[in-house]
Amino acid sequence: MKYIYTLLHILVIVGFYLMGEQLQDFFNIPLPGSIIGFLLLFTALMLKIYRLEWIESGAHFVLAFLPLYFIPATVGVIEYGKLFSGKGILLIPIVMASTFLAMASAGWVSQYAAKRKERSD
């Protein structure tokens, strides 16, 4: 019985995803369909239109294997051997440096804002 619920939950998640794709297509929204589906589901949960218990076990199942779904895309690196053997290898330190800057600014700004909020509270 538990498995049937999990399966139904997964179908609901796929339903939200397809709804997002349809909306994206229909209104030409500049957001991926998956993100629209995510926002729809989050809104439905916040407004208590849809309940957590009706989707939780399916979400756990889908998210348990999250890294797996990335693999076919990352295997695509074999197509770029030429790029990374030339000037393109520079893109790796560029991405690393830019990641450092993003982490430093996100971490510093949020910590600073939280400390200010604490003081004013």
Binding site: S34, L52, I71, P72
Partner: peptide, 21 residues
Amino acid sequence: GSWVGTLLGPAVVALAIPLYK
């Protein structure tokens, strides 16, 4: 490989659950 990659879309939708919690 694309069969496996297709599951990414629904997985993003499922991220709404940890955020809601």
